[in-house]
């Protein structure tokens, strides 16, 4: 019996290794759809992750509330001051709005929205230290497809890399595999914004031409040259400029506007025709 098992052991190990290497190789590149097993596995996890993230959020909120109570009086005084200044600002903005509407009408301005947004909740994160991904509670059933951009009010979050029926995985722009076309808002120069920084919090912007000028404090927005991100979405602010290649080039360290550690809700950018189906 033992001899029989041993006889089959070596071929079995060889088959196992071949299957494993083949699967790793096949899944190392970008895939259009997830496999049936992956889809089932992820959809089983969705309700558990949803419940767990809700519990976690509740605990964090309660902790925040307790901390807030301590500084309530001070904050109240600060906020009263802020309200007064904001009221003056609102009054000014109303004037601008009226003026803007008048100008739009005068210029026959077409306010067309090219994209619609689908709100999704972050229910999970990558289990590994070596990937920066999040899991959202929206999937194929809601009209989500691979390659769609994910944003928040603060700026760019990432792109959908794979979708199951009720969830999708988003590759964050801080991941080592991420590269986004960017634009220096002040000058209009093109840059390539890459993730994979050592701190996993910042991005690296590399110039696409020799004449590119980037300074600390510059705002980087999406260039809109790719089909993934709409144009002019805020990416981050340049916090440092480092020389490269014997001062012949440079790279800029960009701090993203989005706080990736505290993402709760995000917006998936849908083409307009899909919004109706998703709703």
């Amino acid at each position: 019996m033992l001899e029989q098992i041993l006889r089959w052991k070596v071929p079995l190990i060889i088959v196992l290794v071949v299957v494993m290497v083949g699967t790793i190789h096949y899944t190392s590149t970008s895939r259009l759809t997830v496999s049936l097993l992956e889809g089932i596995g992820r959809d089983i996890l969705v309700p558990f992750q949803w419940v767990f993230s809700r519990v976690q959020r509740f605990v964090l909120n309660q902790t925040d509330k307790i901390q807030t109570l301590r500084t309530l009086k001070e904050r109240n005084a600060e906020l009263e001051e802020l309200v007064q200044s904001l009221q003056a600002e609102v009054f000014e903005l109303r004037n601008y709005k009226r003026e803007n509407e008048w100008l739009r009408e005068a210029l026959d301005f077409k306010n067309e929205r090219e994209h619609d947004l689908l709100v999704a909740e972050v229910i999970g994160r990558s289990p590994s230290n070596w990937e920066s991904t999040i899991i959202l509670n929206k999937g194929m059933a809601h009209g989500v497809e691979k390659g769609m951009a994910v944003v928040t009010n603060d700026g760019v979050v990432g792109t959908v890399i794979n979708v199951s029926r009720y969830s999708c995985t988003v590759l964050l722009i801080i991941d080592a595999q991420s590269a986004t076309g960017g634009l220096v808002q002040a000058t209009g120069d093109l840059v390539l914004v890459e993730g994979g920084q050592a701190d996993r919090e910042t991005l690296m912007a590399r110039p696409l031409s020799r004449d590119t000028v980037v300074e600390v404090g510059d705002i980087i927005v999406t260039s809109g040259l790719s089909t993934v991100y709409p144009k002019n979405l805020p990416v981050g602010e340049v916090v440092a400029v480092e020389p490269r290649d014997y001062n012949l080039s440079f790279s800029a360290v960009v701090r993203p506007f989005v706080d990736f550690a505290r993402l709760e809700y995000v917006l998936i950018v849908l083409p307009q025709e899909q919004r109706g189906e998703a709703a």
């Binding site: 767990f52 993230s53 959020r57 994160r125 289990p127 996993r200 550690a261 709760e264």
Partner: peptide
């Protein structure tokens, strides 16, 4: 696995995630 992939802000200690699995 659910604990490891917990949503917000995730299971993070001093900038790293423990490998629970």
């Amino acid at each position: 696995l659910v604990l490891q992939t917990a949503g917000v802000p995730g299971l993070v200690f001093f900038g790293f995630k423990p490998e629970l699995m």
